[in-house]
Amino acid sequence: MTSLTQHIEALLFTAGEAVTFSDLSQLLNVPEEQIKKALEELSAELQHHGLALVTTNTHAQLVTSQEVAEFLAQFAEEGGNELSKAAMETLSVIAYKGPISRYDIDSIRGVDSRRMIRQLLLRGLLRQIRTSGKASLYDISEDALMHLGITKKEELPEFENLSRSEDIDRLVTQEK
């Protein structure tokens, strides 16, 4: 383990919540590319540990690992925090196709998704990426990944199939 990965691990532990790559980059005075690399290294180091690293395109967070999830579930309260069918459908589209605009989400679901997006944002399950002059893009948050018991979206079932599907890309780009 390099000192950079150690320092990232320590920062993430003390933060206790998700930290952006750019914050890590600033705190450690290291370019973001190197941060991402070190995060991958840390993630590999943590294999078979009780802790794991959850990462999205922008954030990293130290959480309990999949291996202890079942063990911990006995202490955690069950149920609650359920998502409606519509919300889950919207979240699924975003999880596989994100970062994605509302327009494209609507296009796949065939229906206006504004209210669902608002709901998911309020529950911290989405991240909104704003770029001036462009429509906001939405992506799944680390919180949502944690609820699903995975550390990155590539672990979603059939991720390759659904995220890279040219069929779906045809669908979302033809109306742009």
Binding site: A52, V63, E89, Y96, L162
Partner: peptide
């Protein structure tokens, strides 16, 4: 295409909070 996401949403629904990773 929609059917694919509809089906996967059901899979994710079953996984939701089943074995969550927990924060600090």
């Amino acid at each position: 295409q929609y059917e694919k996401f509809r089906a996967i949403a059901e899979v994710l629904h079953a996984r939701w909070n089943a074995k969550p990773l927990l924060p600090a």
